Deep mutational scan, measured.
Amino acid sequence: MDVFMKGLSKAKEGVVAAAEKTKQGVAEAAGKTKEGVLYVGSKTKEGVVHGVATVAEKTKEQVTNVGGAVVTGVTAVAQKTVEGAGSIAAATGFVKKDQLGKNEEGAPQEGILEDMPVDPDNEAYEMPSEEGYQDYEPEA
């Protein structure tokens, strides 16, 4: 019985440690998101679009440190934060509304985080759909 109880105690310690790591990862992701939003706020009209992409990228980098179902929630929060940063930029006159959601080359930025393969159960990952990809044929 002692062996059984000791095993359960060790398992509990492992769960607590994993929860603490997840909590730490979420806190880091939130900190990076805040950094990115402050970065966007300090940019001029020309830099705002690039700044919004930076927020998304920093958040995406930190999301990889967070495991399990938390990833889905962090990704949703990050996307809403990026959308909010863009709205703030438009409201303050840093950028025109028609410039939001495009990178410096004018290509749409939507789907940055949505296409990231995420499995809350950590069982399997699927690649994003290939609808947006084109076949590449090298020139002879």
Rank of each mutant, 00 (worst) to 15 (best):
T44Y: 15
K6I: 11
Y39S: 07
G93D: 06
A30R: 02
A107Y: 04
D98V: 04
E20H: 09
D135S: 03
V63Y: 05
F4I: 08
P117F: 04
A29L: 08
V40Y: 15
T72A: 08
T64L: 07
V70T: 02
A30K: 02
A17D: 10
A29K: 05
E83S: 04
K96N: 12
G14I: 15
Q24A: 15
A107E: 14
T54Q: 10
A11R: 00
T81W: 05
V77C: 11
V66Q: 02
K12T: 07
A11P: 00
Q62K: 06
V66F: 11
E104M: 13
V26L: 08
T33K: 01
D135W: 05
E110W: 03
D119F: 03
V52H: 01
V3D: 01
G101T: 06
S42M: 05
E13S: 15
K80Y: 11
T64S: 06
G14P: 01
V74S: 02
Q134V: 03
G51I: 13
T75V: 13
G132P: 03
Q134P: 15
N65E: 10
E126P: 11
E46I: 14
S42Y: 12
V66N: 02
M127C: 05
V48S: 01
E139H: 08
I112E: 08
G51P: 01
M5Q: 00
V82C: 05
N122D: 09
A17R: 08
V15T: 01
E123T: 09
T64V: 12
D119A: 07
L113H: 09
E123P: 15
V37K: 01
E20C: 13
E35K: 09
G68W: 12
P120Q: 11
A11W: 15
Q134A: 08
E139C: 02
K96G: 13
G25S: 15
P117M: 11
T22G: 14
G31T: 02
D119K: 02
E46V: 12
T33F: 03
E131L: 07
E130G: 08
V63H: 01
T72C: 08
Q24V: 06
P128L: 11
A30M: 13
P117G: 13
K21L: 13
G25T: 12
Y136N: 03
K60C: 14
E83P: 09
V82N: 04
I112H: 12
V26T: 01
G41C: 13
E28V: 15
E139P: 03
A27W: 15
T33A: 06
L100F: 15
E131I: 12
A90W: 15
K23V: 05
G25R: 13
V26A: 03
I112P: 08
A56C: 05
V49C: 05
S129V: 10
T54L: 06
G36M: 13
V52C: 09
G14E: 13
N65I: 12
A140N: 09
V66K: 02
Y125W: 04
G31V: 03
G67L: 15
P138Q: 05
V118A: 03
V40Q: 00
T54A: 09
E130V: 15
